[in-house]
Amino acid sequence: MKVTMKDIAKELNISINAVSIALNDKPGVSESMRLKILRTADKMGYINEKHHYLSVFSKSNICILMQSYYANTGHFYSIVLRSIVERAKELGYISILNYFEDNQFEFPDCIIDRKVTGILVVGKISDQNLNQLKNTGIPVVLVDYTSLGDTCDCVLTHNKQGGYLITQYVLDKGYKRVGFFGDLEYSLSFSDRFMGYKQALVNRNTISDIESYINQYSILHETEKYVLENDVNSIVSLLKKSELPEVFVCSNDSNEAVTGK
């Protein structure tokens, strides 16, 4: 049997008129009650049967997409996600979190059914998958990432400047052998911090061969997977393969904790 407004009203113990007002986005019920009615209607299957109401329902949701690879990244992304959810809630939105695989990308149901008013992608996403999202017509914003091949709104920190300033600070303290510790393929933030580190070395103008210097003292690959797995032995092996610098400029706090710098 098809779900009716009467069924929804009965489920919530409210009037049919209140249900109708909420589903048709008309004034007369509080925003909290409107969302409660919309969610109950969706849970009971009414929204899917009545596509006329999808545009109304979509106004209350945002979709958060993040590669499953980042699910265990620890403190940083947990803060980002919590901040997004809390701020969205303050503005009257419900966040729907979906993990994805970049090489096997699939639209989550909330996007297919157009039950969201916007999409936030946290971390990396390929240009191909980004274009698929943009082609839905739903606004997309990238968080902690930007595409070099396609225009898209994004939210970034001053990673290059941060890498530059910390390296400059260490050099000003008199250290001569300064390496970089971080997986450059892990995220755009890491590579930007590395570029800041490298620029500080160039500007110092006392190193004859920058590339050889960096290769001698830096560890730029595979570090993050070992950090995430808390695989100390593998990290120690990486450290033993390189000539240790006096100081490591680390790509993030987790690297800093492991290297003890």
Rank of each mutant, 00 (worst) to 15 (best):
T117R: 10
T259W: 04
K43D: 13
Y197A: 02
N13G: 12
V202T: 13
S58F: 04
Q104G: 09
S126E: 07
S95A: 15
G182K: 01
R87E: 14
Y175P: 03
D192M: 15
K115T: 05
C250L: 07
Q216R: 15
Y93E: 02
S234M: 10
D42G: 08
V170K: 09
F100R: 00
K134T: 06
L239Y: 03
L220H: 06
L54K: 15
C63G: 07
M1K: 14
S218P: 04
N252A: 11
I47A: 01
L188M: 14
S58Y: 06
S237Y: 08
S126W: 05
I125E: 00
L238G: 01
Y226V: 06
D231P: 02
Y197M: 06
K134P: 03
K240E: 12
V143M: 02
F194H: 02
L97H: 05
D153R: 12
Y99E: 07
M1V: 15
R204W: 14
N255T: 09
V80N: 01
I119W: 00
F248S: 01
D150R: 13
A71P: 08
L201N: 05
G45C: 07
Y226G: 04
E31R: 14
K115F: 07
V3R: 02
G196M: 03
A71T: 14
K176C: 07
F105A: 01
L12F: 05
S30Y: 05
Q104K: 14
S78H: 11
L35I: 13
K198L: 08
H158Y: 12
V227L: 10
I235Q: 01
I119N: 00
H51R: 15
Y53N: 06
F190E: 09
Y226M: 06
S212Y: 11
L156A: 06
V249N: 01
L12K: 04
H51Y: 12
V121N: 00
Q67S: 15
N233S: 15
G162W: 04
I96Q: 13
L91F: 11
F194S: 01
I79S: 12
Q128G: 09
S234N: 12
I112G: 03
M44E: 05
S254R: 13
F107Y: 07
I16Y: 11
K160F: 10
K124F: 09
I138G: 01
T151P: 05
V3D: 02
N233G: 09
D127H: 08
F57Y: 13
N13M: 10
E86A: 12
R87A: 13
D183K: 05
L156G: 03
L23G: 00
V232D: 06
I112S: 07
L12Y: 03
Q161T: 14
V29A: 03
V19E: 00
G28C: 05
F181L: 11
E101Q: 12
D150K: 12
Y145K: 08
D231E: 07
L38A: 03
V155T: 09
V247C: 10
S147H: 05
F194I: 05
E185S: 15
F76D: 04
S251A: 15
M33F: 11
K2M: 15
L97G: 04
D150F: 11
S15W: 08
S60D: 10
I16S: 10
V249D: 00
R87W: 10
M195S: 12
C63F: 04
Y164T: 04
R34D: 02
D172C: 13
N252Q: 09
S242T: 15
